[in-house]
Amino acid sequence: MRIDIISCQPDLLDSPFSHSILKRAQQKGLAEVHVHDLRKYAINKHGQIDDYAFGGGAGMVMMIEPIDKCISDLKAEREYDAIVYMTPDGQTLNQNTVNQFSLLHNIIILCGHYKGVDERVRQQFITHEISIGDYVLSGGELGAAVLADAIIRIIPGVLNDETSALTDSFQDGLLAPPVYTRPAEYKGLKVPEILLSGDTPKIEQWRFEQAVERTRQRRPDLLNE
Rank of each mutant, 00 (worst) to 15 (best):
V61S: 03
D50E: 14
A53V: 01
M60T: 09
V61G: 02
I43W: 07
K69C: 04
M60Q: 06
N44W: 01
K45Y: 01
A53D: 00
F54A: 09
I49C: 12
N44T: 06
I43E: 04
D51H: 06
G55K: 10
M60N: 05
H46M: 01
G47K: 06
I67W: 04
D68K: 13
N44E: 05
G47V: 05
Y41H: 13
I49W: 04
V61K: 01
D68N: 14
K69I: 06
D51T: 01
Q48R: 14
M62A: 01
D50H: 08
G57Y: 11
I64E: 00
P66D: 09
I64G: 02
F54C: 02
R39F: 10
I67S: 10
N44I: 07
I64H: 11
N44L: 07
M63S: 03
D50W: 02
D68C: 01
M63C: 04
D51A: 06
M60Y: 08
D51Q: 03
A42F: 05
M60S: 07
V61N: 07
G56Y: 08
K40T: 11
F54H: 13
G56Q: 10
M62G: 00
Q48H: 09
N44P: 10
N44V: 09
G56H: 07
G47I: 04
M63N: 03
R39H: 11
G55R: 10
P66V: 10
M63P: 09
A58W: 07
H46L: 05
K69Q: 15
R39D: 08
I49P: 07
G55P: 12
I49V: 15
G57V: 11
K40I: 01
N44H: 09
A53I: 03
G56W: 03
M60H: 09
N44R: 04
N44C: 09
K45R: 15
G59M: 01
Q48F: 00
I64M: 15
G55Q: 05
R39L: 08
Y41R: 07
A58E: 13
E65A: 13
Y52V: 09
R39V: 10
I49H: 01
G57P: 11
K69V: 05
D68V: 00
M63D: 04
G47A: 09
F54G: 12
G47N: 12
F54K: 12
M63F: 06
H46W: 04
I43Y: 02
G55N: 10
A42P: 04
H46I: 01
D50G: 03
I49G: 02
G56N: 03
K40R: 15
N44F: 06
V61E: 05
A42C: 06
Y52E: 12
Y52A: 14
Q48D: 15
D68Q: 14
A53R: 10
A53C: 03
A42E: 06
D68R: 14
A42L: 04
A53M: 03
N44G: 02
G57K: 13
D50R: 05
Q48K: 13
I43K: 05
H46K: 14
Q48T: 15
Q48E: 14
Y52L: 11
D50P: 09
Q48N: 15
V61Q: 09
D50F: 03
K69W: 02
Y52M: 10
D68A: 14
